[in-house]
Design a protein around this nucleic acid. Sequence first.
DNA 1: GCAACGATAGGG
DNA 2: CCTATCGTTGCT
Length: 199
Amino acid sequence: MIMDMENKKLSRAFFERPTLEVARDLLGKTLVFGRHSGIITETEAYIGENDPACHAARGRTKRTETMYAKAGTVYIYLIYGMYHCLNIVTEAKDFPAAVLIRGLRMEGQHLDGPGKLCKALGLTRQHNGLDAITSGDICILDTPTTHGHITTPRIGIRQGTDLHWRFVLQDTSGNSSPRKKAGPVSASALATRKASRSS
DNA sequence: GCAACGATAGGG
DNA sequence: CCTATCGTTGCT
């Protein structure tokens, strides 16, 4: 049982890839934290100091330091004074990028929203900096998916709304939230990302 | 030191 | 639309 989980843990190499690919590929994977586990249904990418919506857009600060850590590091921050948001750091060390985990399908409930998700799992800023690759507390398992996905602009930001860097697992049970508006396919997002990195 | 504001959620 | 609630940031 425990050994099974070890074999299925996503490796650091998975998170070292381009953030848009990681955000897309995390859909359908299983987040495990303590006794909690659930299927990731919604993610967002935040990529580098040139992404105006990224916390690192104004450079390295005490808070954003975690975004510059090695891929697979857990980045958790407090938002609006009352909610926490869970992210997994991606790409190379010292390149600030991460994937925000916004939705989780668990047995008996669908956690829709990053603040809700952290509250239900008990994730707080005390877990900031944990390594999801080597930590015994938190990891992501490589579970298979047959579902497709859509992309949309990211939620709750004022800048960078032209970038469709939100990824939503296609809901086959037909009870998706009205907030999950349809958007262009991921190919355009991947192209946009290439352009923004090459500058 | 201080004040504006936010990768939210829930309620009217 | 409104606001609860507080750490981070940037400015004075």
